[in-house]
Structures are given as C-alpha cells and as structure tokens.
Design a protein around this nucleic acid. Structure first.
Length: 232
DNA sequence: GCATTAATTGGTC
DNA sequence: GACCAATTAATGC
C-alpha cells in the first residue's frame, strides 16, 4: 500500500488512500519507468487508463498542421495525465512525452470507474480537479487571444517559476526556445528576442538554456495590469 | 576535436 | 509577428 506513504500529497489517489474502498484499486496500480524523450501517451491511441506522475517532468501537447506542436501544459510529481480521455473519449486527443527519466503510476479506467462510484470524496476531488482544469483552459484561450508575444513569454516564465521554482537564481526547468515557443504559441526567434530584451532590462538572467528570473514582481505587474489571472 | 543542433540576429513580407 | 537565411554558440559523440 505504498500510496499511503507517497510523498506526492497533491495526488488525488494519495489523498484518498486511507479509505478502505480504494485498496483494491491501489493493489492493481502499475508503476513503471519511462525514459527521457519517450512517449507516455501517443496522440490518438485508445484510452486504457489514467496516469499519475510519480517523479519527473512531462509535457502534454497536441500536434497541429505541418507538425506544429502546441504544448498545453507540463506535469510533474503528483499531476494527472490522460484525464481528458478518461470516461468519455475512447482515444487520447493529446500526446504526452517524458522530458527526463520519469516514473509513472497507472490505473485502468475500468478499475477507477468502479471506485469512483463508491467513494464520493474521491469523485468530488476529481470533479474539483476537472473544474479547475476547465478554468485554466478558458483562461489560456483568453491569454492566447489577447496577450502580446512579450506578455505570453513573461506569463510562461512565471508559470515555470510557479510550477517548478528557482534555485540559486535559476529556473529548475530548462526549456529550449523552441519548446518555449510551442508553449506560448509563437516562434523560437520571437522567444529569443523577448528573452534578450528582458535581459537588457535586467528582468531576467539568461545564459543559453539557463534562465533566471531577476525581478518577479515587475514581471507579474506587467501582466497583472492587463487584468489577466496568474493561475494557469 | 569534429559534427550536429540550438540560439542569435538581420532582413522580407 | 511569421518565415527565411546566415552566423555563432553550445552540445553530443
């Protein structure tokens, strides 16, 4: 019953692991490693279950026309992956790839559905999560429509900082310009340009892939003044 | 150390 | 603000 002792306290399963009704599900959990660069979910693949990140970083994306990639979000320890395909859709509409060597926990849809019908607190946690996801999604649509490239890049930097944090003045997650562009919906050249102007303004530090946020408050203020939420 | 990839910069539409 | 091209920096083998 290792979910009881899991350090990922934000995990919905871990939160409800003390309930006796969930024990059967926990017994059937599959835990496995995925190497850096390998697929966690292939776009269009049939849904068999739902994944939780035990350890590591994962990108969730969708491939558009001409192979253009839109990164929807990043997941790390305790986060859910593949929840949209769960329940309703039969096929995953997104792809997920390991950004480093990771460990996943997986539960089959059938088993999870069984316990969701018997454990209201777990179902409620899932419902709250889906609700928040929808909120984030709507916010992201608005940001894409209304933010300038500079604002979107700043927003992305703050997101990385919120989610992964900084140690000794450097973000704990190194993304290439290309990945940053795929995340913000622009091009790698634009990201480079915004980075270098932010650097000149002393708002960030950048040394190749190593990026550090110098003045979080000023950056926050810049997008706050435009009435955007900071909770994506 | 060399080869491939990523980042930067300038220019055009 | 995207796309293209040329140069330079960084990284993998």
């Amino acid at each position: 019953m290792e979910c009881l002792n899991c350090k990922n306290t934000n995990c919905l399963i871990s939160k409800n692991a003390t309930l006796p009704e969930i024990h059967e599900l926990l017994e059937k959990k599959h835990k496995f490693r995925v190497l850096k660069g390998q697929d966690v979910i292939i776009e269009g693949a049939p849904v068999h279950g739902i994944y939780f990140v035990f350890k590591g970083k994962v990108k969730i994306f969708k491939t558009g026309l001409l192979g253009k990639e839109q990164i929807n979000r990043f997941a790390q320890d305790g986060d859910i992956i593949g929840h949209r395909g769960f329940g309703a859709g039969q096929y995953h509409k997104i792809g997920a790839m390991a950004m480093e060597n990771i460990v996943l926990c997986s539960f089959s849809s059938v088993e999870l559905l069984k316990v969701l019908k018997t454990i209201p607190s777990l179902t409620f946690d899932f419902m709250s999560f889906y609700s928040e996801e929808l909120n984030r999604s709507e916010t992201k649509v608005r940001k894409f429509a209304q933010m300038t490239v500079r604002e979107k890049v700043i927003d992305a930097l703050l997101y990385i900082n919120r989610k992964f944090g900084q140690t000794s003045g450097q973000l704990n997650f190194q993304l290439s310009r290309k990945q940053m562009a795929d995340f913000t919906g622009t091009t790698d050249e634009q990201v480079t340009r915004v980075f270098s102007t932010l650097k000149k303004e002393k708002l960030i530090l950048s040394n190749g892939k190593k990026i550090g946020i110098n003045d979080i408050e000023v950056l926050k203020k810049e997008i706050n003044e435009h009435n955007y939420f900071l909770d994506l």
